[in-house]
Design a protein around this nucleic acid. Structure first.
Lengths: 204, 204
DNA sequence: GTTTGATATTGACGATGTCAATATTGATGT
DNA sequence: ACATCAATATTGACATCGTCAATATCAAAC
């Protein structure tokens, strides 16, 4: 499902202006942050894209499917952010990854909510989106693997994801604290995870 | 806003069957887990409570206000759970609190989602609910205070809440892993937090 | 018993998601 | 050049929803 059509394919297919699908997704992404996923209506999306009422149904099965595609794109960008944090130089990839994750939540809260809530989109019904989400988690696991003993990576990656995701969620949902503490919190979480990795106690 | 009227007040006030407000809340709580907060309609709530279409508007300003009351009750029960974990005997109150928190999410995911999402209810507009939520966090902070140095309680309580909330959220939203690992994860998180509390490194 | 205020109900309206039916377009085969 | 066809687009229609107004009904106070 490429967002932009490949350069060698005929650029315009439909008769109106061709890339109606992209126009719809762009319009939807804009409305998403303005109204929230629940209040966003397909009719407004269509109008903003300069199309008719029913246009979304030419490209998506229903509202949930359109939202699922937005979520998928969000997961893809998140995974790219995390991979970039991992590949950059320096030993503090964990801090950088945590900060990216939190920043994404704070800069596009409605999209973040959409990605991580079954309320409006059930990811299980959209394998492409679910797979993109799994890929993002894999990127995070890679980072944790660089600073934890092998037999603890699974547990610590789970804890890392939970910790950062929980903080990001609480920030945007409960207004836990202002966004300018983001970097500081990313450092705190990285320190906690490294301390946990360094502790060697029995599993029972 | 007592859920059940005090025994000395006249039990029935309205002419239909008096405690219409309770009937509406009970009906709404039932439908909430069946349909989700977004799909739940006030008309269905009213019908299930044996009342007319417009009955909810006699007791709540609008749909959001009714949902906010459900969230408030949820926060109150959560705070009670955490306080009970703290007051029970034994030194592992942290594990017990984490497990309670996760259990609540898994047993009533729609309510949990409602409590922790601005999508449908903006807590800032419902001070009673917001205050109940703050009380729950205070209970958690009390527990962390029993196993962390005083100058780290704030940071570690934040981390504890984030860690447990993140895991609970990911479990119900992304089907991270089955519910039977709950106790095991509660122990893992408690161990991580204690390890972080035991580490004494500089803040910069 | 009449007044009164809270509570309950029905009517109405605009908005929404979505199904059906129809129309339009650009490409294709001749 | 033209008929064909599948993809794409549009309009019509319907049930459902949240919510405002207007109205009806009860319980208690004077």
């Amino acid at each position: 499902m490429p967002r932009r059509s490949a350069p060698h394919e005929p650029a315009k297919r439909g008769y109106h202006h061709g890339n109606a699908r992209n126009a719809l997704l762009t319009a939807a992404a804009g409305l998403l942050e303005k109204l929230g996923a629940a209040s966003l209506s397909l009719r407004q999306v269509a109008e903003r894209a300069g199309l008719s009422r029913q246009a979304p149904y030419n490209h998506f099965k229903n509202k949930e499917a359109l939202l699922a595609e937005l979520a998928r794109e969000g997961y893809e960008r998140l995974a790219a952010s995390l991979a970039a944090s991992r590949d950059a130089q320096g030993r503090n990839s964990l801090e950088r990854a945590a900060e990216s994750y939190i920043r994404r939540a704070q800069e596009a809260p409605a999209l973040f909510r959409l990605m991580f809530s079954r309320e409006l989109v059930d990811l299980a019904r959209f394998p492409a989106a679910a797979q993109a989400g799994a890929a993002a988690f894999e990127a995070l696991k890679d980072i944790v693997a660089t600073c934890a003993p092998a037999d603890r990576v699974a547990d610590l990656a789970l804890a890392a994801w939970s910790l950062v995701h929980g903080y990001a969620t609480l920030c945007i949902e409960v207004a836990l604290e202002p966004a300018d503490r983001r970097a500081e919190r990313a450092r705190l979480f990285a320190r906690i995870l490294r301390a946990a990795a360094a502790t060697s106690d029995a599993h029972h």
